[in-house]
Write a protein that binds this DNA or RNA. Structure first.
Length: 419
DNA sequence: TCTGGGGTCCTAGGACCC
DNA sequence: TCTGGGGTCCTAGGACCC
């Protein structure tokens, strides 16, 4: 049996952990630069706040209903996520951290030694008490069915006690008939449209389609999903794998035309991507750099150049990465365009322990050591060491509603008064 | 005025090889 | 008039996820 544990309205719930006064008021959390709504409390959902809407489009609603607005605080969310995952891993050694707010757990010998009802109740209680985050839990014999069970638990918290178990054929069929096709894990907008056009409106109907048809129209991905939903474990439980691509991309607060300014951003993106790369003990051989104009300003010329450049040897050094990223920027930059977004993506990733030595060119071995020291200093002191071309003009994201880093910064920790 | 960021996997088609 | 066949590898783009 698998369990899928999902934190309810995760970012919104995180903001409430240290600010209980917002527990019963509508809350939303915004994306970078305070752009779009990326998390909503139940109260906000009821008010009709849609996922992904630009906040400026709902100013009226926010004002009318006193919706509490937060800028995103990823340091806080990341830390609370770690705490949740640590608690969950005490329930089973087999845990797949699927995203910042979701994890699959595997239970091998469930019915003999454990009662899933006990486990479900206990997991919810433990995480709520230990971190302050409410969760929903779904149990089922396959991962996609655990997703379905989870949705039921989330939809009917009172009736289910925040967990739901699919452990019989009757419950499986009933659950699938209840699940709208567009809500199925792996069925997105396009697939859902296509399925509805042939009158497949729920998950059960999808599992009744012929294999050959599903394979042809929805590729092997769709076929695997069909089997998994039918009760045959097909979507595999996965161990932690190093990432195959590492991206650092940002929209700018304002549009940028100047090449030097772009070059500073690219340097910073290179450095951030380098840190992520080294933290998973990897090296990269390809650097992809892109620029984008403002896609919402159709009155302005649109230009979205991109290029991938090869580094002659695998490296994890910020110096090397940035050298080639700058080269890439030089290749694609055109003056006279107002750019709104840029990014650096590292690809061609290999692991430290499977290093191919290049015959002609290689990295200065001192760089590895230097980067190690640098990462340590920055971890300890918080981004004190910067590279020359990252520039001194410290640009800032718009974050007008940012909460403190309650759980990761000593200066932000809540003080409790005695007496 | 204002519009996110970071991933995965699969497929089709082109380049290239013998 | 007429122009092989069978592979591999790589990449861009599209679908999906949170």
């Amino acid at each position: 049996m698998y369990a899928l544990v999902d934190c309810n309205n995760f970012f919104a719930s995180c903001e409430r952990v240290f600010q209980p006064q917002y527990r019963n008021v509508p809350v939303v959390v915004l994306s970078n630069n305070d752009g779009c709504v990326i998390a909503r409390s139940n109260e906000s959902k009821v008010l009709g706040v849609k996922m992904g809407v630009p906040i400026f489009q709902i100013h009226q609603l926010v004002k009318e209903h006193n919706i509490k607005v937060f800028s995103s605080n990823y340091t806080l969310y990341g830390d609370l996520s770690n705490r949740v995952m640590n608690l969950l891993s005490t329930f089973s050694p087999d845990i797949e951290i699927y995203s910042i707010d979701e994890a699959f757990l595997k239970f091998h010998t469930f019915s003999k030694y454990f009662d899933l009802n006990d486990i479900g109740k206990s997991m919810h209680r433990t995480v709520l008490k230990g971190v302050g985050i409410p969760t929903s839990i779904g149990f089922a014999p396959t991962k996609s069915l655990a997703k379905v069970a989870n949705k039921i638990a989330k939809k009917f918290p009172e009736r289910t006690g925040n967990y739901y178990i699919i452990d019989t054929e009757e419950k499986r069929i009933k659950a699938l008939k209840w699940t709208e096709i567009g809500d199925v894990w792996g069925i997105g907008r396009q697939f859902s449209k296509k399925l509805k056009s042939i009158n497949v409106n729920n998950a059960y109907q999808f599992t009744m389609l012929p294999d050959a048809y599903v394979r042809k129209e929805f590729s092997v991905v769709g076929l695997r999903l069909k089997h998994d939903l039918s009760g045959m474990p097909t979507i595999e439980f996965e161990d932690v794998k190093p990432k195959k691509g590492i991206a650092t991309t940002r929209s700018f607060e304002n549009m940028i035309t100047d090449k030097r300014e772009l070059s500073e951003r690219v340097s910073t993106f290179s450095a951030l991507a380098g840190v992520k790369l080294r933290s998973q003990q990897s090296n990269c051989e390809l650097v992809h750099v892109f620029l984008q104009s403002n896609r919402f300003r159709l009155d302005l010329p649109q230009f979205n150049p991109k290029v991938t450049v090869k580094i002659p040897f695998p490296t994890s050094s910020t110096f090397e990465i940035n050298k080639y990223a700058q080269k890439a920027l030089n290749e694609i930059y055109q003056s006279g365009i107002q750019y709104k977004k840029a990014g650096v993506i590292l690809m061609g990733i290999s692991q430290d322990d499977t290093q191919q030595l290049s015959m002609f060119e290689y990295e200065n071995p001192k760089e590895k050591v230097l980067m190690k020291v640098l990462d340590k200093i920055n971890l300890k002191l918080g981004e004190k060491v910067r590279f020359g071309n990252m520039g001194v003009s410290k640009w800032k994201m718009r974050q007008e509603h940012l909460t403190p880093q309650f759980s990761t910064n000593l200066n932000h920790i809540i003080k409790v008064k005695a007496g």
